[in-house]
Amino acid sequence: MNTDQNSPADTIRQISLHQASLLAYILALHPDRSEAQDILQETNVVLWQKIGEFRPGTNFRAWAFRIAYLQTLAHFKRTKRSHWLGFSTELIETLADEAEPLLTDLEQRQRALRHCVEKLPAQDRDIVRAHYESEQPLAELSARLGRSVGALKQVLFRVRRTLRACIEIQLTEGAGDV
């Protein structure tokens, strides 16, 4: 299964390096975090199984994205469900083509995000953590946190906006151009 050029260590390293990008790519095709995680796991299995087909020296990321795309379509077929947002196959294919060149610096952005999250006020950080870690619907989360759904939406909107701005600033700081 694995050739000399693709040792298990190399394969693990390659797959590990692209986890964030792969998840982002899958989410672009199917923006359901829970199912996207499933598709990512399935993609990882296929990458591991098919690593012998990967030609060293070619673009591993592009190859992995292609497999992620096929696994996303396979997921819809297997679960016998259509896209939860009603996207057509043509639109998913277009997004697949356009996502790849846009998802190039996620490693850097992930590092910047980590730093930005640390700078959030504790209350905001707790809400974001609760939202992403629990994956509860907003109505349930709002009851748990004792806030209205509207208030929760406002906090999440504000925090996302703040974090995105912070990431840009972090990247500028670290760019080293000047």
Partner: peptide, 14 residues
């Protein structure tokens, strides 16, 4: 969605 992916990575589902 890429930003959402990063947040999902930062706060993995328990």
């Amino acid at each position: 969605t890429a930003f959402e992916a990063m947040l999902a990575y930062e706060f993995p589902v328990a």
